[in-house]
Structures are given as structure tokens and as C-alpha cells.
Write a protein that binds this DNA or RNA. Structure first.
Ligand code: MN
Ligand code: MN
Ligand code: ZN
Ligand code: ZN
Lengths: 149, 149
DNA sequence: ACCCTTATCGCAACAGAGTTGCAATTAAGA
DNA sequence: TCTTAATTGCAACTCTGTTGCGATAAGGGT
């Protein structure tokens, strides 16, 4: 039972791609669906594994780049130097700042849309655009499995 | 006119290293001095360039690792997948959360010790340890040079 | 001042994530 | 169905950082 809204069928995904005047290719549809179903930010590797063989790694990289450039997804970098991607919800599609949580145990990154990101006052001469707000710690699942030991 | 306190001489730097029961090698002294003089977080590459030839790249990587492990410095990762290092001031040596600013124009990362980092409420089951708070935009210098055009 | 011990260094080889060039394929409109 | 440019697949590549190991040298003891 995914917490996210019901996953879109292929036709809806294809429409979303066509709305950007781009070609609805199998790779794009597959990645889009996967990110839509995922409740956390996924890395290229995780996406590759989830989709199995059938798509070249470079194709997946390019699909992810395209998703970010087109504004459908956004990219965050984790402590292990790997990019993680999550679908931009209508809420954060407008580049609204939102917080992230990275679990040190399992390495997953979660989008915390509920938490407001404070906008700080900057030193003179500095002009801020985006704010990154990331909490590191242990996620609910890893916290639980640690209790069981 | 550096905003930071007067840079320490070699003997002071050596003392700082010896206080950790470690050997005061040329590489460690040089990197420590450089980070002490820098007002922003430096990447390995920047450190290598600044010090010129004379130290092996691996040695510099190991010095930086040692600095982080010993608590003298802390490491942040930037959007370009490269680590940046800044000396832990007495204030943030205790792992006190502090904000960072990354300039999109010149790529530099600044430590904003003045800005307080808010501690957010997390979803149930999540336990937070560290908070990363990074503002992206344009630094004072790049903002200025843009005006001149 | 000299010797030991072993922490640290230098080199070379390696690893992982991501990028680029280009010919072959194919989505989508005519 | 035909055309054409967007997209793919593959191979080679870059960049940052890591590891193994023999050589070097910091620093404590004499
Ligand atoms: Mn997010
Ligand atoms: Mn800092
Ligand atoms: Zn976890
Ligand atoms: Zn700048």
C-alpha cells in the first residue's frame, strides 16, 4: 500500500511526456513510472536494478538528465557522491524548497514535503536562490529493525 | 585583510597536530595552514593547486581524511560530486550545525557560522542526527563582477 | 647526536559514478 | 507508408577518490 497517490497508467505517463513535446520512449515511461511509484529518491543504480536489463546505463542517465532539465524530477546528491532522483510533485515542481532526510543505515533519501524550509538572512553581497535542507539520521524502518536486536 | 583571526605560525600548527598524538609532517602542516587561511571550503583539487607540486595527490587525500577523522576539519559535498573541506573552528569543532553557502558562479563554498540552523520536527520513527543547511546562489564577489558588465 | 619503531609517504594500480562521440534505431508527424 | 530528427546502444573516456605495498622519515628513547 503505497502512501503516494495511485500510480498512473501508461497512457497518463505518456501524456505527461508528450506535454513536454518530447518522445514517449519505453525508457522514459519506465523510469517515470518507477519514480512515480517510489516513495523515496532513487539512485541511477537502484533504477537500473529495478528495471532489469533491457535499457543501457547511458540511456538511463540520459533519461534522468532529461527529467531534471524538463522539471519533472529533481536531483539531490548524497554523502556517497551519488545522485538521487525523485519525481517533482505538483507541490515541489515549482522549485519550492523542501527538506530531505537521508538514512545513514540504509542510505535512502526521503523527501519531507511537510517540513517547511526556513529562509535565512545572508551576509552582505550574497544573493541566495535555492536552499538545501537535509537531515541525516535513521529512518523509521532502520530504527525499528535496530530495536529488534 | 582576512576576516578570520591572524593565521597561525608553523609552531602553533605543529602544536595543534601534536595535541592529537600525530606526526607533524610537511603535508599536514601545509594543508592545515592553507585551510586556516582560507575563508571558504576548499576542494582537494584547489588544495593541490595551491600547494603546487611537492605532495602526492594521495598524500593530500589522506591528510584530508585524517583532518576529518581527527575532528580538525569537516567535509561537505558539493553539487559537482566533489568534497570540500573547511577547518573546524572552535565553534563548530563540537559538530555544531552551521549553514553553508555555495556560489553557482565560482563554485566556492562558504561556511556561514553566523546563521543558526533550525532543528525541524521529523515524521514518526525518524531520528535525526545531523542537519545540513546549504544555500545556493551567488557570492559577494561574483555578484559584484556581474554588476560591472 | 644516533638508533629504532612505526606512522606516514609516494607510486601505481584500481574502483565507481557519470559523460561523450557517433553510427544505428525508432517515435511521431506528414 | 515515408521521412526525419530525437533517441538509443555501445565503446571509450573523464573525474574524483581508494587501496596495497615497499620506501621514507618523525619523534621518542638512549
Ligand atoms: Mn526532494
Ligand atoms: Mn562548514
Ligand atoms: Zn534506513
Ligand atoms: Zn562566487
Amino acid at each position: 500500500m503505497p502512501a503516494s497517490p495511485p500510480l498512473a497508467d501508461s497512457t497518463a505517463l505518456i501524456a505527461r511526456i508528450h506535454a513536454l513535446a518530447a518522445r514517449a520512449t519505453p525508457a522514459r515511461i519506465a523510469v517515470l513510472r518507477l519514480l512515480d511509484e517510489a516513495e523515496r529518491a532513487l539512485s541511477h543504480r537502484e533504477i537500473e536494478d529495478a528495471l532489469g536489463t533491457g535499457f543501457d546505463r547511458v540511456t538511463l542517465y540520459r533519461v534522468l538528465d532529461w527529467l531534471v532539465e524538463s522539471g519533472l524530477a529533481h536531483r539531490v546528491i548524497d554523502a556517497g557522491r551519488v545522485f538521487r532522483f525523485s519525481l517533482a510533485s505538483p507541490a515541489n515542481a515549482t522549485h519550492t524548497a523542501h527538506a530531505h532526510f537521508r538514512c545513514e543505515a540504509c542510505g535512502k533519501v526521503f523527501c519531507l514535503d511537510e517540513i517547511p524550509v526556513p529562509t535565512p538572512a545572508l551576509p552582505a553581497g550574497f544573493s541566495g536562490k535555492a536552499v538545501e535542507y537535509c537531515i541525516t539520521g535513521q529512518c523509521a524502518r532502520c530504527d525499528q529493525s535496530e530495536q529488534e536486536k
